[in-house]
Amino acid sequence: MKHLALLIVGLWALAISSCKRDSDAPKNSFTPYDIQIPKRFPPMEVPTYNAMSVERVALGRKLYYDPILSNDGRACASCHYQNMGFTSDNFPVTPVLPHVNLGWSKHFLWKGEKTCSLEDMMMYEVNEFFQTDINKLNADKTYRDLFFKAYNVQNITSLNVAYALAQFFRTLNSGNSKFDQYRRGEAVLTPNERNGMITFFTEKGDCFHCHNEIFLTDNDFHNTGLDSTFSSISKGRYDVTGEVSDMGKYKTPTLRNCELRDRFMHDGRYTTLEQVIEFYNSGVHQNSPNIDPLMTLPFKETGLHLTQQDKDDLLSFLKTLTDTNFTTNPDLSKP
C-alpha cells in the first residue's frame, strides 16, 4: 500500500513537470533602451505594455526594411528613404508623409485617418496596409528567434510585429538641424538664413502658427486655400469626420528635412520649395470654403508681397531645418 501511494505521487509529479506552459518557457532579460530625446522636446510617452528594449528596437528596424512585411515585395523603407528624411518620391497615390518624430503624434496620415497610439497605427500597417502574412514570419527561424528574444513568444502574432515596428518608429527622431543648434546657441545662422527665419516666425510670412518651432508641425489639420473647390475623390479631413467644416483640411506636414523632398502638399502638386513659397506668397485661394482664418489676414488678401530676396531668404532658412545627423544615422539605416 505504501509503495502504491509513492507510485501515484511520483506519476503525478511527472505529469505536472511534463505540462509545459508558455510561462514555463525560458525567459529572456531585455536590455532597456533609452530614447534619445532632442533638447527642448517633450518627454515621449511609451506604453507600459510595450516598454522600450534594445532587442525590440533592433527587431523593429529589421522589419522596417524587410519586404517580408508585404505580399508584393514592399517594405516600409520602399517608400521611406532615410536620405530623404524617411519620405520619398516613390508613392502610388498621395505623397508619403515622413516618418519622423511620430512618437509624439496622435494623428496619422494626411486626413488623420488614424487617431491612435503608434502601436495601433502599426496594427493598421500590418493588418490592413501590408496585410502581412504572419505564417511567413513564423516559418522563418531567424525571426522566430528574434521575436523570442524581444517578446518572449514562440508564436509570432501581428500584434508582436506591430509592437516591434512601433519601437523602431520611436527612435526616428530628428532634432539636431542647424536651426535646432542655433536655438541652443551652438550654431550661427547666415544673414540670409536669419532674415528668412524672421519672415517665418513673424506675421510677415506667418508660417509659425501651423509650423511650430519644435516639431515644425502643429499636428493639426488646416485648409490653407490650395483649392477653391474640392474634388469628389478627396475632400480632406471631411472624408474621415463627415464634418462640413473639415472640407479641404489636411494634416500639417512637418518641415523638418523638407529640403530633401521633391513632392509637396497632400497631392504632390509642387515639386520644389520655391513653388511652395510662391503659393503662399501669391497663390492662396481666399475664397476656398472653410479656409483657415489665419490665411485671410487683411494684408494677405492680395498675397504676402514678399520680395524675391525675402523668398530666397525664406528658402535659405528652410534648408537649415535639414538634420544630416538624422539622415545619416547608422542606427537608423538598413541593418
Binding site: 517633450p42 516666425f201 509659425f208 518651432e213 519644435i214
Partner: peptide
C-alpha cells in the same frame, strides 16, 4: 520655455522673433 514642453504649450509658443513666451489666447473663427 517657461512652461513644460508639451505639444499644447509648444503650439502656443510666441516666437522669440516677436518677444518670446506664449500666446495667452487664440480665439479664431469666421
Amino acid at each position: 520655455d517657461g512652461l513644460a514642453a508639451t505639444l499644447d504649450n509648444i503650439n502656443m509658443g510666441w516666437p522669440d522673433e516677436m518677444g518670446g513666451g506664449y500666446h495667452f489666447m487664440k480665439l479664431e473663427g469666421h
